[in-house]
Amino acid sequence: MKQYFIVYKPYLVLSQFTSELKKQTLADYFAVPKNVYPVGRLDEDSEGLLILTNDEQLNHRLLNPSFAHEREYFVQVDGAITQEAIQQLQQGVEINLSGKMYKTKKCKVELFKEAPTVPERNPPIRFRKEIPAPWIRMILTEGKNRQVRKMTAKVGFPTLRLIRYRIEEIELGNLQPGKMIELQQKTIYKKLFHE
């Protein structure tokens, strides 16, 4: 039987169920059948939406680059990000991927007028009174290794906190870190692939 879960992966948790490194994993938070795994991953220092499933077709369609799909991130950056930096991000920037330079695809980037409502992070980001830490929304159609962090660093505003909020029409909504909900197959296919 195919099963589908969406979870809010907490900060400093690996996107896997086992670890030899004594680090926290998904198994510390989510009890799912043995054959259910995350589709894709979020870095240990990133948080937010992960899909867990045993549906190999879904896995293929979400991870194969030929099926581009939107991923929306809430990104808190170090410093008062400029309009020029936002435009650079939108046009694509060169980042280093395993020693090779790669130009990111065009994407949507905007500054939040007010900080989004997000759960507290434990531990919180380092707060410095004299340096602003605004939030931007980034909507990408690709997912290279540490792409968002490399992109914001490239334009001079390193990422302090990174939350994946949405994949296509599946959103975190009010889901809190370490929480999970199960979805029906027809719901997940409709929200992801508009079927």
Rank of each mutant, 00 (worst) to 15 (best):
residue 145 N to E: 02
residue 151 M to C: 11
residue 26 L to D: 06
residue 24 Q to A: 15
residue 60 H to I: 06
residue 15 S to T: 03
residue 137 R to Q: 12
residue 103 K to V: 06
residue 45 D to S: 09
residue 98 S to G: 04
residue 73 Y to C: 07
residue 162 L to F: 04
residue 5 F to D: 05
residue 18 T to R: 14
residue 55 D to M: 09
residue 30 F to Y: 10
residue 137 R to Y: 00
residue 123 P to K: 05
residue 53 T to R: 00
residue 45 D to E: 12
residue 181 I to M: 08
residue 36 V to L: 08
residue 44 E to T: 09
residue 10 P to W: 00
residue 62 L to C: 14
residue 82 T to Y: 03
residue 84 E to G: 04
residue 28 D to T: 01
residue 114 E to K: 14
residue 164 R to L: 10
residue 109 V to C: 12
residue 79 G to S: 03
residue 183 L to G: 09
residue 64 N to I: 00
residue 24 Q to K: 15
residue 94 E to R: 13
residue 6 I to C: 14
residue 191 K to W: 10
residue 87 Q to K: 12
residue 121 R to P: 03
residue 2 K to I: 05
residue 76 Q to S: 01
residue 146 R to I: 06
residue 167 I to K: 09
residue 139 I to C: 08
residue 5 F to K: 00
residue 142 E to C: 06
residue 4 Y to A: 01
residue 162 L to A: 00
residue 1 M to C: 06
residue 158 P to S: 06
residue 51 I to H: 11
residue 77 V to G: 12
residue 132 P to T: 12
residue 75 V to K: 14
residue 107 C to Y: 02
residue 161 R to Q: 03
residue 131 I to Q: 14
residue 66 S to R: 13
residue 113 K to P: 12
residue 187 T to V: 13
residue 59 N to Y: 13
residue 186 K to W: 04
residue 187 T to D: 14
residue 130 E to S: 14
residue 52 L to A: 11
residue 79 G to H: 10
residue 16 Q to I: 03
residue 65 P to Y: 09
residue 80 A to G: 09
residue 189 Y to V: 00
residue 56 E to A: 14
residue 147 Q to C: 08
residue 71 R to N: 04
residue 155 V to Q: 07
residue 1 M to N: 12
residue 14 L to F: 05
residue 139 I to T: 15
residue 54 N to Y: 02
residue 125 I to L: 14
residue 98 S to M: 08
residue 34 K to I: 07
residue 99 G to Q: 01
residue 33 P to F: 08
residue 29 Y to W: 15
residue 122 N to Q: 14
residue 104 T to G: 08
residue 50 L to W: 07
residue 91 Q to K: 13
residue 71 R to Y: 04
residue 156 G to P: 10
residue 99 G to M: 02
residue 174 N to F: 03
residue 166 R to A: 14
residue 184 Q to V: 05
residue 185 Q to G: 08
residue 182 E to C: 02
residue 61 R to L: 12
residue 136 I to D: 07
residue 112 F to H: 12
residue 183 L to T: 10
residue 30 F to E: 08
residue 173 G to L: 04
residue 8 Y to E: 01
residue 29 Y to E: 01
residue 1 M to V: 13
residue 62 L to K: 10
residue 37 Y to W: 04
residue 139 I to H: 06
residue 66 S to Y: 07
residue 155 V to G: 08
residue 58 L to K: 03
residue 60 H to D: 11
residue 76 Q to T: 01
residue 5 F to A: 04
residue 186 K to D: 15
residue 156 G to M: 02
residue 97 L to T: 15
residue 108 K to F: 05
residue 43 D to Q: 08
residue 190 K to I: 03
residue 68 A to F: 02
residue 167 I to C: 11
residue 81 I to G: 03
residue 184 Q to G: 15
residue 20 E to P: 07
residue 94 E to C: 11
residue 141 T to S: 14
residue 16 Q to M: 02
residue 150 K to R: 10
residue 74 F to K: 06
residue 83 Q to T: 13
residue 173 G to I: 03
residue 191 K to H: 12
residue 34 K to S: 13
residue 7 V to S: 00
residue 1 M to A: 13
